[in-house]
Computed example of a mutant assay.
Amino acid sequence: MGKRKRDEDYLLKKLKKIEDRLSRRRNEETNSESAWDHEEDPIAMDTEFGSDNASAVAVKNIDTNTPNSLPTGDEEIILDEAFLTLLGDAPKDESVAGPNIQKDIAARLREVIKNGLKKEQKEKILEEYPFPANCQLFRAPVLNPEIKAAVSDLLQKKDSSIEARQNQTGVAVTALSRALNILALEKSETNQILVKHISNASRLLCDSHCIDTRLRRNFLVSTLNNKLKETLKDTKRDKFLFGEDLSEALKATKAISKSSQDLKNITTKPKPGTSRSQPSGSQNFLNLKSPYPGVQSRKPVPSSQRATGWTPPVKNQARRPQTQPSSARGTARFKHSARRT
């Protein structure tokens, strides 16, 4: 860091020295009536001003002698085809702009696009255009009570927000339909052009209304029972999102599922590790192991011996260790030692 600081100070001093020399030189040129010879070699001035300011004087001479040698930033250079070929293919602008809208109309629509309508303005417009009696499908479909009881509160709020947007789209279609009714009374070439534009806008809004309906159905069906998904997808919307006959469709699906289970041939599979048929008699206990090592498991008593109370003796049965009092253990040790002697 110290070396860099010294280098910067040195360069600043050099630059200040060059600027002082140039300013003195300009003052001398202003006071004197003679001018510099433009053909003089700028490097020759190095003997008077030193080698540090030679490059600065050379730049000054270039700027004064050839002012138009380099283009300025305001000038536009036109490139030839050969140079453009070397640069490669030019990017294509795929966006196509339509004709401009009247500036007052455009300003108001841009404001709504950026900030939306105020609550009072929106409510006023929605009340002004009630849905037509013969086009009640402009209204957003209501969520079926059966589905509403089966989904969470979060999904219900999400569905309600999309439903409100659908109602607003339906009001927009209603307003455009009124304009079409007025134009339909008078047939003229101008009216035909207006009818075309208004009809296109109405159909696009109706398509958005249909897309929102599909969106609501799809995210609700994805959270319900998998066995009923196909039944829910086959339903058609009316004033309800899944149709008025949803209850009958669900009952029919459950009845069909129950009937199919009754018709199937149900076979019970044995549990792993167990035999299919349990043998009778004494073979049931042949594979049983004794809980004590070295002790043979006792065989079952036949029915003929069970009546008399006789049981066969067990061979090679290891005796379990028994605990004895301390006096008995001492007597046993004494007897054992006496036998050895």
Results as ranks from 00 to 15, higher is better:
257 S>M: 06
270 P>F: 03
114 K>S: 14
116 G>D: 01
95 S>V: 02
249 A>P: 00
63 D>L: 09
282 S>R: 11
17 K>S: 13
291 P>K: 05
104 D>N: 09
284 N>L: 15
86 L>Q: 11
48 E>Q: 10
80 D>A: 04
332 A>D: 11
336 H>E: 13
265 N>G: 07
107 A>G: 09
320 R>P: 04
114 K>A: 08
4 R>L: 11
330 G>E: 11
285 F>G: 03
17 K>M: 14
216 R>W: 05
55 S>E: 07
24 R>Q: 14
288 L>C: 10
125 I>K: 01
218 N>I: 06
68 N>G: 09
134 N>D: 15
112 V>R: 01
227 K>R: 08
25 R>T: 11
261 Q>R: 07
106 A>E: 12
21 R>Y: 07
171 V>W: 01
337 S>M: 08
323 T>P: 00
276 R>L: 10
183 L>I: 14
267 T>H: 12
248 E>S: 15
334 F>R: 13
231 T>A: 03
232 L>F: 05
234 D>P: 00
247 S>R: 02
123 E>M: 10
143 L>N: 04
100 N>W: 04
277 S>R: 11
43 I>W: 07
39 E>K: 14
77 I>T: 12
66 T>K: 02
264 K>V: 04
100 N>P: 02
32 S>D: 14
196 K>H: 15
66 T>P: 00
97 A>N: 13
50 G>I: 08
142 V>L: 06
281 G>L: 11
274 T>L: 13
257 S>F: 07
225 N>H: 05
234 D>F: 04
156 Q>D: 12
57 V>D: 00
228 L>H: 01
320 R>A: 14
15 L>W: 01
175 A>W: 08
271 K>I: 08
284 N>Q: 15
241 L>N: 01
295 V>N: 01
239 K>H: 09
49 F>T: 05
75 E>A: 11
236 K>S: 15
300 P>E: 08
304 S>R: 07
188 S>N: 05
189 E>A: 13
43 I>D: 13
99 P>N: 00
206 C>P: 00
86 L>F: 06
112 V>Y: 02
104 D>Q: 05
36 W>R: 08
179 A>Y: 04
211 I>N: 13
227 K>G: 10
33 E>S: 15
272 P>I: 14
297 S>C: 11
63 D>W: 03
48 E>L: 10
298 R>P: 03
326 S>H: 09
37 D>G: 03
69 S>M: 02
324 Q>P: 01
321 P>E: 06
31 N>S: 04
28 E>Q: 02
161 S>Q: 07
306 R>L: 13
95 S>N: 15
88 G>A: 14
166 Q>L: 15
304 S>E: 14
149 A>Q: 12
74 D>V: 06
136 Q>C: 00
142 V>D: 15
328 A>M: 12
325 P>M: 06
210 C>W: 10
178 R>M: 02
314 V>D: 14
32 S>Y: 04
280 S>D: 08
118 K>F: 08
32 S>H: 11
252 A>F: 02
92 K>N: 09
100 N>E: 12
189 E>R: 04
152 S>F: 06
318 A>M: 09
249 A>F: 00
70 L>G: 01
338 A>M: 13
29 E>H: 08
137 L>N: 15
247 S>I: 05
147 I>S: 00
341 T>K: 04
